[in-house]
Design a protein around this nucleic acid. Structure first.
Lengths: 232, 232
DNA sequence: CGAGGTTTTGAGGCGCGTCAAGGCTGGTGG
DNA sequence: CCACCAGCCTTGACGCGCCTCAAAACCTCG
């Protein structure tokens, strides 16, 4: 539990970056200024296209996006979810995957880090976390059962939303359809639905109107081998 | 087809890096000097351990290694294979996954890139390729059937070995057991075996004594939607 | 209040996992 | 040089988890 600033509650994306590295006022000002230049994108809009050149770096302020690859026959794999405080753009010239808006979202230009060491550290830390999540995702899809995959991913959502300060009275936004969730964990949406219903019936999950509650975090963590893990 | 140097055939790891960015003599000399300081590691030895600090950066000269995560109950996921010319160590302080030697291998210290732009470019390119392969791996495990997963991964091996100049008369080393292959693609070794036997019986695969031949590359590529793709 | 997308549920089938048992191969020691 | 052994490969029988197809109920927003 970190105390929130008393007067101006921080923008979630900024709060998340501040959780990665202590940010001084100069860095915070840069971020707040960038946030004022925000741009809106509607749900399902393609933001980056695989194989195309990447422009200036973008930071996700609100809403969710997803990194996606689509096979020729229409099968679709979601490689990663992008949440507030994450970068939309990878560190390269050509996009290795498409990025689409999951719901309506807002973007800001990522402030340049030159001469702002603490901001550079936050960026670096964000990139490292992202890579770590990809490893977790491979393990999830490769080794876990349907129920484990889903619980493990929902726990990741919970911990990431906590980092951005987006959990209120144990509830947090999860603006996904079951279809999208299915393409992330490599299952059909039908089987995802059955698994979710089973979790609901045993009281481990509430999820309505794009808001989620996990009433028994400890039990869910135990189900996926995160015995006494607290959010990193 | 690039012509090989007439006199001194290049070390595979160096040839692979040279394929990523044109290397000048200074860079090649640094690499050859590093290669002379090589260190041997026996099969199955753990080279890096998840959660532990990382020392100087290491380059794989010969043999194969694997990035691995192990769950509490013993399930094991291979996150990536490391082949000659790849880095063993990620760009971070703490190892996000364990690295083990798949077979006997040799390592060299990775030369420092400061003031060697072409070497820096090769390193950067290697890192980007590695990330791209992780995305491919997620898609493979998440969306493909057993046969597609295996064929897709074998094609990756083929193309990577080609880059290092390690294909002789259509044969190249694949020093894996079916067990290891199974943990990479998220199947049981029994089902991997059945799938391999089926590929063999229809003449699409030869694999004996840790050496592999793919007699009909075009057909295999078509099976996984790489219609007219040549190795990048 | 209608329409399209999403969720939910059922019935049936298949792909891959599990359990079990031999066969093969390469390395080791006598 | 051969016998042995451990690890690896191969195959069969059977079961389960997840997929497919189908249809109805439920939202949500125009």
């Amino acid at each position: 539990m970190t105390a929130l600033p008393a007067i101006a509650p921080e923008i979630p994306a900024i709060q998340r970056l501040a959780a990665l590295a202590p940010l001084d006022e100069a860095a915070l000002d840069l971020l707040r200024t960038a946030a004022r230049q925000q741009r809106a994108v509607v749900a399902r809009r393609e933001i980056l296209t695989e194989g195309q050149a990447i422009g200036p770096h973008l930071l996700l302020l609100s809403g969710w996006a997803a990194r996606v690859r689509v096979l020729e026959d229409g099968r679709r794999q979601i490689l990663a979810f992008i949440l507030p405080g994450d970068f939309l753009t990878p560190e390269r010239d050509i996009a290795p995957a498409t990025v689409v808006a999951v719901n309506d979202l807002t973007l800001a230009p990522a402030p340049d880090v030159t001469n702002i060491p603490c901001l550079e550290e936050a960026y670096r830390s964000a990139r490292l976390q992202e890579e770590c999540r990809m490893l977790a995702h491979i393990t999830r899809i490769g080794q876990m059962s349907a129920q484990e995959r889903i619980v493990d991913l929902l726990l990741e959502f919970h911990d990431r939303m906590a980092q951005a300060g987006l959990i209120r009275r144990n509830r947090f936004p999860v603006p996904l359809t079951q279809d999208v969730l299915a393409d992330a964990v490599g299952l059909t949406s039908i089987h995802v639905n059955r698994t979710l219903m089973s979790l609901r019936r045993r009281g481990d999950l509430e999820w309505r109107a794009r808001e989620m509650t996990l009433p028994n975090l400890a039990r869910l963590r135990a189900m996926v081998g995160q015995e006494n893990t607290s959010p990193p």
